[in-house]
Amino acid sequence: MSHTLEATNAPGAARPGKPKQHRKRPTVARRRNLIGWSFVAPFGVVFVALLILPLAYAFWLSLQTETLAQGNTFTWFDNYVRAFSDPLFLEGARFVVLFSIVVIPVQMLVSLIAALIIDSLTTRLARISRVLIFIPYAVPVVIGALMWGFLYSPSFGPGAEIFGLFGLVAPNLLSPDGIFFGLINIVSWQWAGYYMIIIYSALQGIDPALYEAAKLDGASKLQIALRIKVPMVASSLVLILVFALIHTLQFFTEPHILKSIASGAIDASFTPNIYAYNLAFSYTQFNYASAISFALGIIVFIGSYIFLVSTRKRSGL
């Protein structure tokens, strides 16, 4: 960590001619300190003003409750107690956890398969599909949700025609029963390409001599993929897992967009974030909304931090 610039001071410290060095060193060190800080300071200001300050203010608000008689009064952790016994909040939290458990493996599997295939082929098809599969990342989440919403829609979409060919009735992915799968598809479509690129770049970094050695030992292509390539990119898989988790627990945009066309399937407390948004903007309960927003952020933060620390060696973060 600290081998960068101390190294220049070290010889001076080791030398016996002390008095002069002693007087000079602090000023050099202080100058470096100052310059180091001035590089970091602009970001530091933004960090404090737009991360620490809003969080602190929201926390302060979340400790109060607005009453008609007295305005805001300090009620300490009442809002948090209320949140964790609020069936609407708990139901939304249950949904995002369940959703993460299903969608993250799906996304990782799709992106891993795509990356392994593209890595193993050197054809033009592989080069083109690398870009094509990535393109959904360049499409705003709002538009992604919108397009799939249209495709799902019984009155716009091709579902009825395609399933009709086989004499089947198309599942309605905008219905209360179907929306879970509808959302899984949207989220996987949007992010798999981005994750594919991350895994693909990691695959490209592996020394091909390893494959040669394995081939000489009689390993098949599949064995090479599963026993060498996958373990070698484990660190990117961990990183993807963490990002996907942070992303999915905060689920907001896709259901918020689909809400207007999936009438009845998505309610005002569908996910914790949607609940907090509606509490704040439809019911103007800012204190309670702050508590939910804050609680959610803290849970995600602690969860992913523990996860990263426990897999520290692999993730490299």
């Binding site: 991360l51 809003p54 948004y277």
Partner: peptide, 12 residues
């Protein structure tokens, strides 16, 4: 703070 989700900051 990398671990603090962006959307958690929206309401604050």
């Amino acid at each position: 703070s990398v671990m603090v989700p962006v959307t958690a900051l929206v309401l604050p």
